[in-house]
Simulated assay, not measured.
Amino acid sequence: MSLRMITAATLLAITFTTPLAAQEMDHSKMNHGAMTMDGMAQPKGDTGPSSTAFAEANAKMHGGMDIVFTGNADVDFVRGMIAHHQGAIDMAKIELQYGKDAELRKLAEGVISAQEAEIKTMTEWLANNGG
Rank of each mutant, 00 (worst) to 15 (best):
D101T: 05
T47V: 13
F69E: 14
H85D: 09
E116C: 04
E56G: 14
D76Y: 06
W125Q: 04
F54Q: 12
A55K: 03
V68T: 15
E109Y: 00
K120E: 14
Q115T: 08
A88Y: 02
A92R: 00
F54N: 13
F77T: 13
N72K: 13
T52A: 14
D101W: 02
I89N: 06
M122T: 02
I112L: 01
A59Q: 11
M81G: 04
A92W: 00
M122F: 09
A53D: 11
M65Y: 08
N58T: 15
K60H: 12
D74W: 08
T121H: 10
I94S: 03
T121K: 14
E109P: 01
G87N: 02
K100Q: 13
M61Y: 09
Y98F: 15
A57L: 03
G71Y: 08
A114M: 13
D74I: 07
A83Q: 10
I119S: 06
A73D: 15
A88D: 04
M81H: 06
L96D: 00
I82G: 01
E124M: 12
I82S: 02
G48R: 09
R79M: 12
Q115R: 07
D46W: 01
D90C: 06
T123G: 09
A83N: 09
E95T: 13
N58P: 00
G99L: 05
D76G: 06
A108T: 09
G48I: 03
T123V: 09
I82W: 01
E116S: 14
E95F: 07
I94D: 07
D90Y: 02
A55C: 10
V78H: 05
T70W: 07
D76P: 02
